[in-house]
Write a protein that binds this DNA or RNA. Structure first.
Lengths: 233, 233
DNA sequence: CCGATTACGCTACGAGTCGTAGCGTAAGAG
DNA sequence: CTCTTACGCTACGACTCGTAGCGTAATCGG
């Protein structure tokens, strides 16, 4: 199921196989523990007890809390990957926003995602794992939506492939970031009204950004890139 | 100096006063420890040692790691609150984006913010503290920017005060969320090019969203096809 | 059926952290 | 000077971590 980084065990043909049911039990127990305890108080021993598994079994499969939680959450994201064609770009955007918000409102994901991202700032391998297991799968939805919109004539086709990729990344960061921030930082609901306002904002931005200029791209040399870090450490 | 939630100690006129220098040393040591160790491995004992302070002193002032880190990070955000008038809405947006990104690229904030937000999903008091100490101060920049743009005639004035507030919240979530996501989740740089693309997206969205409709807000459950943007932009 | 191999459950362990209590001392307030 | 509070220090029980060792269970190749 999850087990994203198990490519490293290609040769294991003999011996007792690992219990697939233990995997399910462990990941489920991890999600349950996340809901009740939160990231900070979640312990490996507790997860093992809930799963009816020895603590050592956990460590045989995952290096630690971080990796375990990534896989536990990734399994949830696997469920929610389909998105129907709603006939218009606006409807598709609103749908993906509400859908993503619903996913984030689940207490398991809510707690875990931010914690894992935080840990990933020191652990590049963990970051890569998060991106491949969770982020990239969501990004696919943006690509699908754009393709549909282009077929409908709602968005202009891309001239440059590189620019298209950059644009898709931008849009994904805007959508996912806005929803996450609204929900987890501002702690306010992503209801249909908000989704509608957000979609309106995005639609106009997209229509313009795709068709080239419109508002002057700002004079470059005007100001330097330099900030004042005002170091305090 | 954060100390956001010390309103609860009004009556302490007698006795030895708390060392203000200890506060500075502790918060500085916390930031340094965050850089080196990250959230996960940061311990109260370590912070105390770095600050040259007894561990008990830490617990006399903060309930635990969460509260301590919030204040330590909030102090950083205090430094970076000014924003100059760059003459155009686009320039102001790009500036605030780059500025915010610079702040988030500092290893202290990078690590701490997400971790604290994660913990806040289980601790409403902590969430409120984060919002009042960090988020709301950033939100002020959005309000200032909008006011300037309205004075310049770049944005229409608001009819409804409630709608104006909702709109400001939306814009703030979009800006902050997008930058955070780009930087911490996608792990890609917020350079001038990205800021420019983002500003373009946002500018067109703003111009349209402010002037009322433009793209039909879509019917509720049974969504049909919508017309394309009326090109008022 | 039989060894070889691997996974599992269990126990135990040292190391490290947590948060608190107790004590004597330092520093302002009245 | 006395009262009150903060500080540094030490020590403590409780807990978590991650690992090691052991006997047992399951599966594969011959």
């Amino acid at each position: 199921m999850g087990k994203v980084a198990d490519m490293s065990t290609p040769a294991r043909r003999t011996g007792r196989p690992r219990s697939a049911e233990a995997d399910r039990a462990i990941l489920g127990a991890t999600r349950a523990a996340l809901v009740e305890l939160g990231w900070g108080k979640l312990t490996m021993g507790d997860v093992a007890a809930r799963a009816g598994v020895a603590k050592t079994t956990l460590y045989r499969r995952w290096a630690g809390k971080n990796e375990l939680v990534v896989d536990a959450v990734a399994a949830v994201f696997d469920e929610q990957l389909e998105v129907a064609d709603h006939g218009s770009l606006r409807a598709d955007i609103e749908d993906v926003v509400v859908r993503f918000a619903t996913l984030l409102e689940r207490p398991e994901t809510k707690t875990a995602l931010m914690a894992v991202v935080s840990e990933a700032t020191h652990d590049e391998a963990l970051g890569a794992r998060v991106r491949s297991a969770i982020v990239d799968r969501q990004k696919r939805l943006v690509l699908i939506g754009r393709q549909r919109a282009q077929l409908r004539g709602e968005l202009p086709g891309e001239e440059d492939a590189a620019a298209a990729a950059r644009n898709a990344d931008l849009i994904f960061d805007v959508i996912a970031g806005s929803v996450v921030h609204r929900l987890l930082v501002s702690a306010e609901p992503v209801d249909r009204e908000w989704a509608c306002s957000f979609a309106t904002l995005l639609l106009h931005g997209l229509a313009a950004a795709g068709s080239g200029a419109g508002i002057a791209p700002a004079p470059e040399p005007a100001r330097g890139h330099d900030q004042k870090p005002a170091g305090s450490v």
